[in-house]
Amino acid sequence: MAVITYREALNQALHEEMARDPDVFLMGEEVAQYDGAYKVSKGLLAEYGDMRVVDSPISELGFTGLCVGASMAGLRPVVEFMTFNFAFLAIDQVINSAAKMYYMSEGQFPMPIVFRGPTGGALQLSAQHSQACETYYSHAPGCKVVTPATPADAKGLLKASIRDNDPVAFMEGELLYNLKGEVPEDDDYVIPLGVADLKNEGGDVSIVTHGKMVHVALQAASKLEKDGIYADVLDLRTIRPLDMDAILTTVRKTNRVVYLEEGWPYAGTGAQIVSMIQEEAFDDLDAPILRVTQADVPMPYAKNLELLAKPSAERVIEACKKVLYR
């Protein structure tokens, strides 16, 4: 297996899916001649031409709506948001049009479309450029949400998302693009949506998480081992569909859960999952479930404040010890 970056894995997925299906096209700001703001679309223009790799004007609402309409008419668009922060301008078309069209039309218009781009904090980009956006999308029935943490997952899940017949918000980690990992070269390396992945096997406590936070959880797990605490790290990989079976399996194994996410706590992904665990596995819990999230503030710029705002391995360790009463 080749070792490639997360960025290259996404590029491979796009490349393979565009070669496989002539209805797949990519549109967004700087995706063609510039090779993508994060170079995810490098080389695609030369290969597929300017009808399939399309530089849009800076008009998030407009080009998102255009792609939703193209999906309605039978194409399979991939919309690149330079970052999901800019997708707020377009969320009307994602929720009101893409996510509801199939239902409103009683199934006459399936809406295969992927909205992808980086989400979450990076390094000192401050409030408007650092936020985890997944809950805005997972809130709406009709929209699937995918958050790959590793290069292999990035490839396999992007391919699955492009082949899926529903709208998918595919949320990449801005700080993950250079992350390297083994990635199968197989054209049909597709990871089905809705299958979580146990990224670390422990037994004392379950850290359930998704997206970039998987790496924070793994750091925490490795430090906890030094104290003789062994943690399951469950990477949900997709928020909707949600692999509840995998969550219940780890809960029943460890009886103690910490939910870690990059976003804010109020009505966050963790809030949903905590609610489901208490409904479905109340008797399996030996401690209240704790959540580790971003501080409940807009992201500050100053380095020290930014560090304080972000979820950290230390805070995860603290939470794990708390649910273990240690």
């Binding site: 009683e106 699937k144 899926d164 949506l193 909707r240 569909p241 079976d245």
Partner: peptide, 21 residues
């Protein structure tokens, strides 16, 4: 029965898509 029909064009083999129980 139509209440839940046509929310999703593709019901994935794994994972939950509805959260109201």
């Amino acid at each position: 029965s139509q209440l839940y029909a046509h929310v999703w064009a593709e019901i994935n083999a794994n994972g939950r898509l509805f959260f109201d129980g």
